[in-house]
Design a binder for these strands. Structure first.
Length: 465
RNA sequence: GGCGCGUUCGUCUAGUGGUUAGGACGCCGGCCUCUCACGCCGGUAGCACGGGUUCGACUCCCGUACGCGCUGCCA
């Protein structure tokens, strides 16, 4: 039987990092085994679900590249199905109508806790066999009272619970909508889900759901409960995909790579391409313990991905940042080369546009410290000589540029640094840039020559030594 | 409170009865070097605690502590 998994978020307004990883685990597992990855929107809580929130889910999944198969299922479209199944359960004696009010319930739970130490419904209505005309009511599941519920979790191992610990949970609310606990079973069966991969916070619910499967005569899927992600502090903004994507300028490769390794591992490997992830991912390698989200390591992983992904893709990622600043570089050898030299120094997508101003615009002023140190009158002859040689250089390649500078060093019997640093300041206005040859090539012959000359002019006006 | 689950360097993790407990981030030191980086080399630091089981426990069992979750007509 082929594997079918699903990601079933409720539209709450943003994609929490934990949900993102659950989606990723599901998607990776499906792609790994050649199965099917489905999306279901759990919008039975009518008060909280909005269209915008659903859109956020779509956008986040698309950005992450987690494409789903088949049509999206909305629980709100299936209300009559749940009602029918619930009635079937009542007829079969597995569920019952409960007319206890919320106030009564509160009192019951207080009493139960005092008497038994456990805060549960006392099953007052369980044997009343009330009909549909009993007035305002909910439908509860008649949980088995004895025995134990056990299952083998693919991640957590054996999970055991005494049935007597379980409550007669509500399946259908007063307003006729199903609760999560009920809808999830009906839908997973309908969608022929074979593996339920979700967060550990659902692990206790699994027993209720297993009882439901049994009552319904359904074959339960396999369960895999992934550990929680801790340490997503609220003060840094919301712990959502959108936040990290925008505020940190992450690539999808970086975020996914980081998040997948938080709770899953494949030997000592840290950096994965998406293809490698699909090939390597397996539920048996998912850790049981929860992990802490660490922005520092996330940044490192993102750096690694920035250096690894194809330049064409990187160009797509950073272009919006350039356009935001009114720059519109053309995709091509020049732009790719520039990205290639900057990526070694970049952590976030925003770093690219931040660090290449002098490749686009003229130097407005020299960084004070750098100019003071490197733009001295003694350097004027060298800078002019460089300008002259670049002007006459036949082929404008990094190799040819390197040759010019090496030659000049030999002639002047000096180290490259003595020439490269002043040239760097002259060309970029600052003391830190990528390699000098690449920088010169990227700036281009014409601007290189004019900037070198302009620097000597500045020296004449400013350096008194 | 009750129930459930978890616990290896500061953090992410490998480990499945016998290892000098491995890797990664960070941090520290060095090398490389035209600056800044990258990279490379080295160092730092860990099996929560207490009992068992065993010739031998990070690995198995029990307990304690701590953490997290559930205990909603949220999911």
């Amino acid at each position: 039987m082929s594997v079918r998994v699903r990601f079933a978020p409720s539209p709450t307004g943003f994609m929490h990092m934990g949900n993102a990883r659950t989606a990723l685990f599901n998607w990776l597992y499906a792609r790994h085994v050649g199965g099917t990855f489905l999306l279901r929107i759990e919008d039975t809580d009518r008060e909280r679900s909005t269209k915008e929130a659903v859109q956020v889910i779509y956008d986040s999944l698309k950005w992450m590249g987690l494409d789903w198969d088949e049509d999206v299922i909305f629980q709100s479209d299936r209300l009559d199905v749940y009602r029918d199944v619930a009635n079937r359960l009542i007829d079969a004696g597995f569920a019952y109508r409960c007319t206890c009010t919320r106030e009564e319930l509160e009192a019951i739970k207080v009493r139960m806790e005092a008497e038994t130490g456990q805060k549960r419904y006392d099953r007052t209505c369980r044997d009343k066999k009330q009909g549909p005309d009993c007035g305002e009511h909910v439908i509860r599941f008649a949980t088995p009272i004895t025995g134990e519920s056990a299952f083998e979790d693919l991640i957590q191992g054996s999970i055991l619970k005494q049935q007597e610990e379980l409550d007669d949970f509500i399946m259908m609310r007063t307003d006729g909508t199903p609760t999560y606990q009920f809808a999830v079973v009906v839908d997973d069966e309908k969608m022929r889900i074979t593996h339920v991969i979700r967060g550990v916070d659902h692990i206790d619910n699994t027993h209720d759901q297993l009882n439901l499967y049994r009552a319904l005569g359904f074959t339960p899927p396999q369960f895999a409960h992934a550990p929680r992600i801790l340490g997503l502090s609220k003060r840094k903004g919301s712990p959502s995909v959108e936040y990290y994507r925008q505020a940190m300028g992450l690539t999808r490769e970086g975020l996914l790579n980081y998040i997948v390794r938080l709770g899953w591992s494949h030997g000592d490997q840290e950096i994965f391409s998406m293809e490698e992830l699909i090939a390597a991912f397996d539920l048996k390698d998912v850790n049981r313990a929860s992990g802490n989200f660490d922005d520092v390591k996330l940044a490192w992983v993102n750096e690694q991905q920035l250096r690894k992904i194809p330049l064409e893709l990187l160009a797509d990622y950073v272009l919006p940042y350039f356009q935001e600043k009114g720059l519109n570089p053309e995709k091509g050898p020049w732009f790719y080369r520039m990205l290639d030299v900057i990526r070694l120094r970049a952590t976030h997508l925003g770093d690219f546009v931040d660090r290449c101003d002098y490749f686009f615009n003229d130097i407005k002023e020299y960084e004070e410290k750098a100019a003071k140190k490197h733009l001295k009158s003694a350097m004027t002859p060298v800078l002019l000589e460089l300008a002259d040689r670049f002007e006459k250089l036949g082929e404008w390649t990094e190799e040819a540029i390197a040759a010019v500078m090496t030659r000049l060093c030999e002639e002047k019997d000096t180290k490259l640094g003595k020439i490269a640093q002043p040239a760097r300041v002259a060309l970029s206005g600052c003391a830190m840039t990528p390699g000098i040859y690449e920088t010169i090539w990227l700036i281009g012959r014409e601007r290189t020559v004019s900037r070198l000359k302009a620097a000597t002019q500045w020296i004449a006006e400013n350096d008194q030594t």
